Simulated assay, not measured.
Amino acid sequence: MTKEFLLECERKLAKSYVCTALGRDDDSIAITKEIAKDIAFEVTNSIHPISMETAPYVVAALRTLANGIEKEMNPLDKEIARALQELMGRFQFVKEEVKVDL
């Protein structure tokens, strides 16, 4: 991810916190969903297309990366990650597969 993309995500996150502080929970939730969607698509776009032959490596790399990041997180952030994972599990992704001819 680029620094610009992360800055935009953090700007939206700060806006979400302000909405929560002002009691505008619906706005905060909408912003949180937008951030989750943006990050999911950023990651997805960086690994697509994949071939069926490379898919197991992509899955292993993403799980290993997630485990490594999570290990360094505090308990509250881990709980937030679990809640976001549930939310993101509802996203619909379009499978794009390519065949690489050798």
Rank of each mutant, 00 (worst) to 15 (best):
M1I: 04
M1E: 04
K3R: 14
K3G: 08
K3P: 04
E4P: 01
E4H: 00
E4C: 00
E4N: 00
E8N: 13
C9D: 12
C9N: 11
C9M: 15
C9L: 11
E10L: 11
R11I: 08
K12G: 05
K12P: 01
K12L: 15
A14E: 15
K15V: 08
K15A: 15
S16L: 12
S16H: 11
V18C: 06
V18A: 07
C19R: 14
C19H: 12
C19Q: 14
A21Y: 08
A21H: 07
L22V: 09
G23R: 09
G23A: 07
R24H: 08
D25F: 02
D26P: 01
D26T: 12
D26C: 02
S28N: 08
I29D: 08
A30K: 10
I31Y: 09
I31G: 09
I31M: 12
I31L: 15
T32H: 06
K33H: 12
K33P: 03
E34L: 15
E34Y: 12
E34G: 15
I35Q: 03
I35C: 12
K37T: 09
D38N: 13
D38K: 10
A40V: 07
A40R: 07
F41R: 11
F41A: 01
F41M: 13
E42H: 10
V43N: 07
V43A: 08
T44L: 13
T44S: 13
T44Y: 15
S46I: 07
S46D: 11
S51Y: 06
S51H: 05
S51P: 00
S51A: 03
M52W: 08
M52D: 14
M52Q: 12
M52E: 15
T54A: 10
A55Y: 13
P56W: 01
P56Q: 01
P56S: 00
Y57P: 01
Y57H: 06
V58W: 04
V58I: 14
A60Q: 04
A61L: 09
L62Y: 02
L62P: 04
L62I: 00
R63W: 03
T64F: 05
L65E: 03
A66L: 06
N67S: 03
N67E: 06
N67G: 05
N67W: 01
G68Q: 06
G68R: 02
I69V: 11
I69D: 02
E70S: 07
E70F: 01
K71N: 03
N74Q: 11
L76T: 12
L76E: 07
D77G: 08
K78Y: 04
K78E: 06
K78H: 04
E79N: 10
I80A: 07
R82S: 13
R82E: 14
R82P: 01
A83P: 00
L84M: 15
Q85V: 02
E86L: 11
E86W: 06
E86Q: 08
M88Y: 05
G89Q: 09
G89R: 08
R90K: 13
R90V: 02
F91M: 10
F91E: 09
Q92A: 05
Q92P: 00
F93K: 05
K95M: 11
E96F: 07
E97P: 02
E97L: 15
V100R: 14
V100W: 10
D101V: 07
D101C: 02
L102T: 11
